[in-house]
Amino acid sequence: MVVYLLCFILFLVGLYGVVTRRNLVKIVISLSIMEFSVFLFLALIGYVHDGVVPIVDPANPDARYVDPLPQAMVLTAIVIGLATTAMLMSVIIRIYRKYKTLDIREIKNLRG
């Protein structure tokens, strides 16, 4: 249970960062922290005590395997997270070139 709680705390740390940080890059880092806390949670769900790697071994067909589905989900989600982060970073580089700053308080063309 403690592991899940730590996982949730990590999520909240990320959320705190997204809400309070003013630097664009730090916001993206916080978003990544949140992302990885969710991945950690998913990987924990599939954990089976004393389970082995889910590869079929013909010699030992009755082994206890860990649940492979959350692992597949995490892998897919990591790929998606990579795409999102790359996209965000390229947008930040563009923003820096236009505004010459990374401070979110000075980037406020759109209001209302």
């Binding site: 999102t84 947008v91 923003i95």
Partner: peptide, 10 residues
């Protein structure tokens, strides 16, 4: 556009 897309992405 860049500002909007950053907000949208976060």
């Amino acid at each position: 556009q860049l500002e909007a897309t950053f907000k949208y992405q976060v």
